[in-house]
Amino acid sequence: MHILISNSSKEPIYNQIKDQIKQLVLSGELKEGDVLPSMRQLAKDLHISVITTKRAYEELEKEGFIFSVIGKGSFVSEQNNEMILERKRIAIEEQLIAAIQNSKEIGVGLGELKELLTMLYKGDL
């Protein structure tokens, strides 16, 4: 498992670890049931404090990427793709609602908004 920590990054170290493990899970490099190094082992290997890895693992657990068995360690959870997609969909909806509200506030109509969205969508991807 490759994890790189940057000390000059603005991002807190526990976030860097969390994001990189998440990435490894989403990309399929870490598979369901794979065992993660113990918090203390990882802290030692990365030369960081135990509480930093502890926080990263706790957040990964909260977000459903890993689960812990007392005395055995932490494992990669079963990844429910439907669930991830559903979560993303909800996030998109929320962001669009915010965009619509902003548009209404300054009188941008639906047509104009659609046009903008189309343009951005094509331009971005």
Partner: peptide, 24 residues
């Protein structure tokens, strides 16, 4: 790179004990 908690005292008084990452 090592401390999990930081305990800070000043002039004979305890100012705080916090998780290291909590400080920032």
């Amino acid at each position: 790179r090592i401390a999990d908690y930081i305990t800070f005292i000043h002039n004979g008084q305890h100012i705080f004990t916090k998780e290291h990452y909590k400080i920032e």
